[in-house]
Each structure stands twice: as structure tokens, then as C-alpha cells.
Amino acid sequence: MIKKAVDYIGNPENSVKLRRFFYITLVMVVLLDIGVHLFHTEHTADLPQGEHESANLSHKGHDAGEEFIGEKIWGFWAIYGFIGCIIMIFVCKGVGHAWLMKKENYYD
């Protein structure tokens, strides 16, 4: 079964179908997020207060209950994921080519 599934995914003939499936999934998760924003009111601050108590009562900068701005925006994490991914690729590859990437026998 695994082999069949893998062969299906690997077969170039199916790439259009797979891509279409992927795009539909993308739209669906954004729709789900919008749905969550419209119909759901659950939030971490509603959890019992003890949950956020420090085990050692020591840390500073604790601002429990403050909601992150991104959680109010529809599809925020989709944008964050997409832009984050692109920036990461460009920055890492850029710094890599400019500085970090050397020939494989660099240390020899």
C-alpha cells in the first residue's frame, strides 16, 4: 500500500492532480481559520490561572493574558508561514553564498 501511494506521488503524470489537491488544501485551512475566528471564542487566557504559574516563581517579563496581535488577523499564520519561508530561504542562501559556504576540502 505504501509502495503504491509512493509510486503515485512520484509519478510525474500525477503532478498536476497533486498540485491541484495541494492548492485546495491551502484554501481549506485558511477557510478553517476564518471559521475559527468567526465562531470560536476559545483562548488560552481562559485556562486555569495555575497553569501559567511559574514552577520556580522566578521569571520576569511575564505578561500572561495579553493576546498576540496576529491571532486576531484572519489567515495570519498562513502569511507568516509563507513569508517566513521565503525570507528564510533568501537570507540563509544569501549569507551562505556570501560568507559561509566554502569548498568541501576547505579544512584539508
Binding site: 495570519f76 509563507f82 530561504i89 568541501e104
Partner: peptide
């Protein structure tokens, strides 16, 4: 919803920039 958006849209970024990610035989 949060996790699926974050991951699947990372996937979108990956497929769009696939060429840029081609592994290079280098030492970092």
C-alpha cells in the same frame, strides 16, 4: 488551524522556490 496554515504555506514557499533550494556540495 494555526499549525496547518503555518506548515502548508511553508510548503507553498518551498515549491515556489524549489530551484533556489537545490543542494550544493559545499562545506558551511
Amino acid at each position: 488551524a494555526e499549525v496547518m496554515q503555518l506548515l502548508l504555506f511553508t510548503g507553498l514557499g518551498f515549491f515556489l522556490l524549489l530551484k533556489k533550494l537545490t543542494p550544493e556540495p559545499t562545506l558551511n
